[in-house]
Design a protein around this nucleic acid. Structure first.
Length: 553
RNA sequence: GAGCGCGUAGCUCAAUAGGUAGAGCAUCUGACUUUUAAUCAGAGGGUCGUGGGUUCGAUUCCCACCGCGCUCACCA
């Protein structure tokens, strides 16, 4: 496992981050640059979502693969670019103070007040949300504000170049637009000197030498001559993207498949500006359970908060690593499987040769340093605990208390604890959350009839007599002895059963599950009661007999 | 109209360097604690969408076709 074999394996790895990184190396060979810039962009709404995570996570994987391929001899940067100079198109539905915001329609988001009253502007609020989001996952990035880049003059040279190539840009853009739109299209959008609105007005004239455009305000009829520099104009989206690539020297940017045409147009514009469009690829979109595109407005699919309620960020990275070029359905059911995929890869990693390690998602997820897998030690071996198993266990334990699950785990591995298995503990907590939200609400309790009430009362009385520390075995036998005399539950066909000492049929236990747990099946009752607590079980029986569970279920 | 993705076991999906198809769940069988599986062992089940081509050999590469679905064509 020398570093030699790592770099050899990296050179031929078929894992997609390496394939992407190789595109960059090829690009670098002709570009004569000493650093590589990765970019991810964010629209005006700025609110981070699961796709935001995916794009940054995937870009970070390519960046890391590139660093390994080049032996970290080339500087890399990841720019998180916020389009906060875009005009506010419509008032969002999900904000307070909508009337305040609606007075500023059309202005750059950095000049719209923050409806939440916490930041100097709406854009500042959204940008803060974005950064908090990215920081939460520990992404390494440089934040960049479009407004700041424009007003600081950082884009000035590229803007003047764009003005110079005005006609070339129009020649690229106009054929892609409908006739009526093409008639008024301008790559430059002046900021109205009086109202501050981002104007979509036809350009009457452009003067590359003076660095200005002339345009007419359609409302007042007044004409203005506005410099394209210093934040007094911004560019329309596709030219904007192209200009930014050139100004910032962006080498790599990926985008969703819905942007294929935009990437093509922006790339042509970038060449017209004398630049080379970045490498990158178009990833497939995420679909919901029914194969529909996930959209925030429709609220289908899965949100990142939902994912992180039931599984770790690493498992989400695992999902994002898998085949970006294939459409993936992203809905609740994929979580447990993805988590277990991740755990499986984590477990396989230490024993793999480099060639396979570099194709192993956990190498990419953890930037080449995946953590040790956590397994339970028991007897002569180690057992890894899968998420599916924990979900099952949570249902069996019928508890949303992690300590109860740990009680079951400790029966298996007495030395295990949340302290010495922290990641397993978080897995337990996720499983419990799943139980609480998806299993518990589906419980359907039923009322006990006269015979069942009597049996349960007898169980409760018996539990009252036993010491609180009674073993699972003791409780189990006590249950048999209670059910045995009841004709309804006698089973003469049970193994070892005699007419004098009949066996106990499943019906007894099924009754307990249905009445006490609201389930058709359940845990081995002796074990369950011993762990759940004798007093707690008696309280549960009291509630069941009082009919409280039926209402609650 | 343009650009994609996907068609593999009943279901959900794998198969990263062409070489006799795998997993999980489901189903069935057996063992075991006098019920219930965080148990163990095993079984069944697929002409890898259709038809061609390249090859000693194709689920894999190429072409065509069929089916399902998505995206774009207003704005970002």
């Amino acid at each position: 496992m020398s570093s030699q074999s790592l770099s050899e394996a990296a050179g031929v790895s078929k894992a997609w981050p390496f394939e992407e990184a190789r595109k960059l190396i090829a690009r670098l060979a002709t570009a004569n640059k000493d650093e590589v810039v990765f970019e991810t962009g964010y629209g005006p709404s700025g609110l981070p979502h699961i796709g935001t995570f995916g794009e940054v996570a995937r870009t970070t994987m390519v960046r890391h693969a590139f660093r390994v391929l080049t032996g970290d001899t080339v500087k890399t940067r990841l720019i998180a670019f916020s389009d906060d100079m875009d005009g506010l198109r419509k008032t969002p539905d999900n904000i307070p103070n909508r009337e305040l915001v609606s007075q500023h329609l059309g202005k750059p988001l950095t000049r719209v007040p923050d409806p939440f009253g916490e930041y100097p502007s709406f854009a500042a609020h959204n940008n803060a949300m974005l950064r908090r989001f990215l920081d939460r996952f520990g992404f390494d990035y440089e934040f960049m504000s479009s407004t700041e880049a424009y007003t600081s003059g950082r884009f000035d040279a590229a803007l003047l170049r764009a003005l110079e190539r005005f006609d070339e840009i129009q020649a690229i853009m106009l054929p892609s637009l409908r006739e009526e739109r093409a008639a008024t299209y301008s790559p430059f959008l002046p900021i109205h000197p009086v109202t501050g609105v981002v104007m979509q007005a036809p350009v009457l004239a452009h003067d590359a030498k003076a660095g200005t455009i002339a345009w007419r305000d359609p409302d007042s009829g007044e004409t203005y001559e506005t410099p394209v520099t210093g934040g007094r104009c911004k560019l329309q989206w596709k030219p904007d993207w192209a200009m930014r690539w050139c100004a910032l020297g962006v080498d790599y940017e990926m985008a969703g498949k819905d942007l294929i045409d935009s990437v093509k147009l922006s790339s042509r514009i970038a060449r017209a500006l004398g630049g080379e469009p970045p490498a990158g690829f178009n990833y497939e979109l995420f679909l919901d359970e029914n194969g529909q595109k996930i959209s925030k407005s429709r609220g289908n699919g899965l949100t990142i908060e939902e994912w992180l309620t039931y599984a770790s960020p690493e498992s989400l990275s695992q999902f994002m690593f898998q085949k970006p070029s294939a459409a993936k359905r992203l809905y609740f059911d994929v979580i447990p499987r993805t988590v277990d995929d991740y755990l499986g890869f984590l477990e396989a990693y230490p024993d793999q040769p480099w060639k396979e390690r570099l194709g192993n998602p956990v190498w990419h997820i953890h930037s080449g340093e995946p953590p040790q897998p956590e397994a339970l030690e028991h007897g002569d071996g180690r057992t890894s605990v899968s998420f599916a198993m924990l979900l099952n266990l949570a249902a069996v334990a019928n508890s949303d208390n992690p300590a109860v699950l740990w009680g079951f785990l400790r029966r298996y591995a007495p030395d295990a604890s949340p302290e010495n298995h922290p990641r397993l503990d978080s897995l337990v907590r996720y499983a419990v959350a799943y139980f609480r939200d998806f299993v518990a609400p589906k419980k359907r309790y039923r009322l006990a009839d006269a015979v069942e009430r009597e049996a349960l009362a007898a169980v409760s009385a018996k539990l009252g007599e036993l010491p609180a520390s009674a073993s699972a075995e003791t409780v189990q036998h006590a249950l048999y002895d209670i059910a045995r005399p009841i004709p309804r539950y006698q089973d003469l066909k049970a193994k070892g059963a005699t007419p004098e000492r009949p066996g106990v049929s499943n019906d007894f236990f099924n009754m307990v599950y249905a009445v006490l747990l609201g389930e058709e099946r359940g845990p081995r009752l002796g074990s369950f009661i011993a762990l759940y607590g004798l007093a707690e079980t008696r309280a549960l029986i009291d509630r069941a007999l009082a009919g409280e569970l039926v209402g609650a279920g």
